[in-house]
Amino acid sequence: MVEKLKRYIRFIEETERLKSVVRSARTSTGRRESTAEHSWRLALLALVLRDEYPALDAGRVLDMCLVHDLGEAYDGDLPAVERPDPALKASTERRALIRLASLLPEQAARRIAALWEEYETGLTPEARFVKALDKAETILQHNQGANPADFDYAFNLGYGAAWFADDPLLRTLRRLLDAETARHIER
């Protein structure tokens, strides 16, 4: 058991890197947010919406929120506004995820990798929900952040819109986010 615990600790130590991976989004004080901060607020958003989605596996949703950006640990965040090649982004992040997961005992490594793949493919209801909330949290941060004068708020209007389309509550959430984005564009 001691060896297993050492592997868990090593994994957690390695994921500390995500506290230093900065994203393009700014906090309300103007500081660039970290990937860890984004993942935390995404998980919190999923938690507060849990009662609206009783059919979803809440544990898997929260787990997915926590692991969805582990692939940014080594090569950082590729901002969506820069429109990175999706295949290259996925393969880079998959390699990082495998590297991180290899630090864990086998069963935990398989679980983390499976959750990440589930999110990445977006085929389950839980993954589609987390994908939508991931985009929502990013847009929320863009709208809430103290951004530079040349910030491209219009990017928000199309960002991840397809993930909201199949669910009435998510469509309403998206309309609210888009209305706030429009207010920023009008300024």
Rank of each mutant, 00 (worst) to 15 (best):
D51A: 15
A182P: 02
A43R: 02
L56N: 04
R94V: 08
E72L: 05
L88Y: 12
A161L: 13
P105H: 03
R110G: 09
V48G: 03
D167L: 10
A127V: 11
E13H: 08
D134M: 06
A43F: 02
P105M: 03
A136L: 08
F155Q: 05
E33G: 02
Q107P: 01
R128C: 03
A36S: 15
T15C: 14
R110L: 13
L104I: 12
R171D: 03
R95I: 09
R95A: 15
N143K: 05
L177H: 03
A146C: 13
F151D: 00
L45K: 07
R187L: 11
I9G: 08
R32V: 06
A96K: 00
R128V: 02
A87D: 14
L169F: 12
T29A: 15
D77K: 11
H184I: 01
R175T: 05
E14V: 07
T27H: 09
D77H: 11
G160L: 08
R174D: 02
D178K: 02
E82F: 03
I12T: 14
L104Y: 00
T92P: 05
R60V: 04
P54N: 05
L88P: 07
W163E: 04
G71Y: 01
P54H: 04
H38T: 05
L169R: 15
E33Q: 13
K4F: 04
G145P: 00
Q141V: 05
T121F: 12
R128I: 04
F129Q: 01
L62V: 15
L177V: 07
I9E: 14
R111I: 09
S91A: 14
L47W: 11
L18S: 00
R171I: 05
R128W: 09
R32M: 07
D77W: 10
L18D: 00
D150N: 14
L5A: 14
R171N: 05
E33Y: 03
D134Y: 06
I112S: 02
S102R: 14
F129Y: 08
E16N: 13
L100T: 01
L62E: 05
A96W: 02
V2T: 15
W116I: 02
A161Q: 10
A161N: 11
L115G: 00
L100M: 11
E137Q: 15
R175N: 07
E93M: 08
E106N: 11
L49F: 10
E14D: 10
E37N: 08
Y8C: 12
P125D: 05
A25G: 05
T172M: 12
F11E: 04
L62H: 05
A161E: 12
S28F: 14
V130F: 04
A96R: 00
K135V: 11
D69Q: 08
Y74K: 06
R111M: 11
L88S: 13
V21W: 01
T27M: 08
S102L: 10
R187V: 12
A101P: 01
G59A: 12
A73L: 07
I98T: 08
L62F: 12
K19S: 12
H38N: 04
E186Y: 02
L123Y: 09
G59P: 03
E16M: 14
A161H: 14
R187W: 06
A149P: 14
G59K: 06
I9W: 10
F11S: 00
Q144S: 15
